[in-house]
Design a binder for these strands. Structure first.
Length: 302
RNA sequence: GGUACUGUGGCCGAGUGGUCAGGCACGGUUCUGCAAAAGCCGAUACACCGGUUCAAAUCCGGUCAGUACCU
């Protein structure tokens, strides 16, 4: 049953994942599933550093340009979608390549995410509004009162987590902790996790350079055209938020560009923290394509 | 040359005798429905030399540097 293999290529932004994934897909004669929470939006292109049109035509990519910025997606949705893409690819090939920097999505695909009942959108709106008005103190007290079991072990300073738990409790009447089994779901394929890294100064140079390229390619225009959608979750994205700030006149163009670089570097650092934690990752420098292929072929030979 | 003001960690910036400033950067980190999100933790200061004092970033003297004005 383990004759199917999923090759997962992860790593920080701008490290060179796209190119490696394409070469691996060509070598193993298969297709690519993106694991990037932003490249799936067809309205955002320059700022998300999507594969070039030429690359997209060379190898079929799933979860790229597949959604609109108005679509709400989460890790559970991604798990379902990605598993579907896998099944489709595995009808044609023994290999599939996953490529992306969204750690949670990769985890959802490889290990699964606990099934949970949906929450009530009205409750969600209500809690968010009350938090906006009354602040973290209220949120902590309310969560502690209504779901003490969760609150005990929670990140008590993190509004996002507390809101989620409180909304869940109010919507379902049950504590979110009762659904959190963290059970790893079996997958009908073997997984090879490849993580790419570069020396930090080199990576940061690449990031800075890529941001300059994005500006040259028209990021300001692209973001401007999306200005009216700025409130959407999908546009809370490095490279867009900063341009919106510029368009609002809060910062200069130069400040906006240097903030994009800075925030992208911050993001890359968080990605590295996430991927380092996953001990299944086998690390490579992006120039060592042949080592990666050898690693996979030796792993599949058994 | 003279007078005045200023000199705080990578940057900004509070503090004028004895409790942690703070923010950003930077580094580390957390992570099951917004994840390019959100949160947590951390090192590095008080221009230099000397003095006063139990105690100096803080007061005094000098040196250096910068800024403004004057000649």
């Amino acid at each position: 049953m383990n004759d199917k293999k999923l090759i997962v290529v992860s790593g920080p932004t701008a490290v060179g994942k796209t190119e490696i994934a394409i070469k691996l897909a060509e070598h193993f004669q298969t297709e690519i599933i993106s694991a990037d929470s932003r490249q799936c939006y067809r309205e955002m292109t320059i700022g998300t550093a999507k594969p070039a049109p030429e690359e997209l035509s060379r190898i079929k990519h799933y979860f790229i340009n597949s959604h609109s910025i108005t679509d709400e997606l989460n890790a559970a949705d991604y798990e379902r979608l990605a598993l579907g893409y896998c099944s489709e690819i595995f009808t044609k090939s023994d290999f599939a390549v996953v490529c992306g920097g969204t750690g949670l999505y990769i985890k959802a695909l490889c290990e699964g995410i606990d099934d949970m009942p949906p929450v009530n959108p009205e409750v969600e709106k209500e809690v968010q509004a009350e938090f906006d008005q009354k602040g973290i103190g209220w949120l902590r007290a309310a969560t502690d009162r209504e779901d003490p079991e969760f609150y005990k072990g929670a990140e008590q300073q993190n509004p996002a987590r507390l809101i989620r738990a409180l909304v869940f409790k109010r919507s379902t009447g049950k504590s979110i902790t009762t659904f959190r089994t963290a059970r790893i779901k079996p997958r009908p394929f073997r997984i090879f996790k490849i993580a790419l890294d570069l020396p930090r100064p080199v990576l940061y140079d690449r990031i800075n350079q890529r941001v300059d390229n994005m500006i040259g390619e028209g990021l300001i225009n692209e973001a401007s055209s999306l200005y009216k959608w700025r409130h959407l979750k999908s546009l809370q994205t490095v490279g867009y938020s900063e341009v919106f700030e510029y368009l609002d006149g809060n910062i200069s163009l130069e400040e906006s560009i240097s903030l994009i670089k800075q925030h992208t570097r911050n993001y890359a650092k968080r990605q590295l923290t996430w991927f380092r934690k996953d001990i299944q990752n086998k690390w490579f420098a992006p120039e060592n394509l042949q080592d990666i292929i050898t690693y996979i072929e030796e792993g599949t030979a058994e």
